[in-house]
């Protein structure tokens, strides 16, 4: 299993923990992630809100680099994933867009580079069977709310990620790790991530309601696969507390961090020390595999 790896800028900043845990997990499972040499910004948020051609050209440039490697592209960031998927969709459905993108990046791109999110690789390429066999630790029945947000699942005709309304990829991974995934209504709600800096109050409201639903559903932690979701949910709990007067201490952990723990990787190597809300509540459930 060998892939071209596109880390995206968040892996160097807010989502270092996702990057670190993904690399560690991949290494442990024998997944070879070859970083795309000379990769550049995917244009998320900034470009796609200003210029449609630029928004497609930036991912296209990166996917052309991956094409030279002859490998499928794997991303960890859901925003990068979404931008690349949208680009593939746009250049393959519009000759006009294809021509304009070729104009910007200097060579034609036909949208043929397969883009995969790391969790799709874990579920489809590694498979639950092999995954289960590789685990050394178990989540010990910890109740986990799997939160998908919007960038992975929408628009479904473009991303084709699992199911738009009731995705279960993360749930199945959680169950395989000996956790208990819970069915809860907040799975694909919006965290407000796009407004993180401009309308923080909206983020506090939307993310707060997601955490409230998880708490009411009995979750001991929320697992995510998107750096924006992680940031919105993890960073704003103090503000939620101020707003509602209730205590918020819900650990928000990446699925790759949970998996890393179950593969016996030390918490520090998974960036668990970087979380704002302590993951102690998760770690206390961790036990060696029965």
């Amino acid at each position: 299993m060998k892939y071209a790896y596109y880390p995206g800028c968040s892996s160097h900043s807010t989502a270092r923990d996702m990057h670190e845990s993904a690399i560690a997990v991949a290494h442990k499972l024998g997944i070879e992630l070859v970083e795309i040499e000379g990769w550049s910004c995917c244009g998320a948020t900034a470009a796609h809100q200003t210029d449609r051609v630029l928004a497609a050209s930036l991912p296209a440039a990166n996917m052309l680099l991956a094409k030279q490697m002859g490998l499928d592209t794997v991303v960890t960031c859901a925003a990068c994933y979404n931008r690349m998927k949208v680009t593939n969709h746009e250049v393959s459905s519009s000759t006009d867009m294809r021509a304009r993108v070729a104009d910007v990046v200097g060579q034609p791109y036909d949208g043929s580079v397969a883009v995969r999110h790391i969790v799709e690789v874990l579920l489809e390429d590694v498979g639950l069977e092999k995954l289960r066999k590789s685990l050394t630790h178990s989540l010990g029945g910890l109740k986990v709310a799997a939160y998908y947000g919007c960038l992975l699942v929408r628009p479904h005709d473009v991303t084709h990620f699992d199911d738009a309304e009731n995705p279960t990829i993360l749930d199945r991974l959680v169950d395989a790790m000996g956790g208990q995934s819970i069915d809860w209504p907040g799975k694909v709600d919006c965290c407000g991530g796009g407004l993180n800096l401009t309308r923080t109050d909206m983020v506090v409201k939307l993310s707060g309601s997601i955490i409230d639903m998880a708490v009411e559903s009995g979750a001991g932690c929320i697992t995510v696969a998107c750096p924006m979701c992680q940031a919105s949910l993890d960073l704003r709990q103090k503000d939620m507390q101020k707003q509602t007067g209730r205590r918020y201490e819900m650990p928000i952990v990446y699925i790759t961090q949970l998996l890393g723990l179950c593969l016996g990787i030390p918490p520090r190597e998974l960036g668990l020390n970087r979380l704002m809300v302590s993951p102690a509540g998760v770690l206390q459930y961790l036990g060696s595999k029965a």
Binding site: E165, W184, P185, M213, E216, S217, G218
Partner: peptide
């Protein structure tokens, strides 16, 4: 636009 199940009461929103 959608139906949610309220945790706990299992009312439908």
């Amino acid at each position: 636009s959608r139906v949610l199940q309220v945790p706990g009461s299992k009312d439908l929103r």
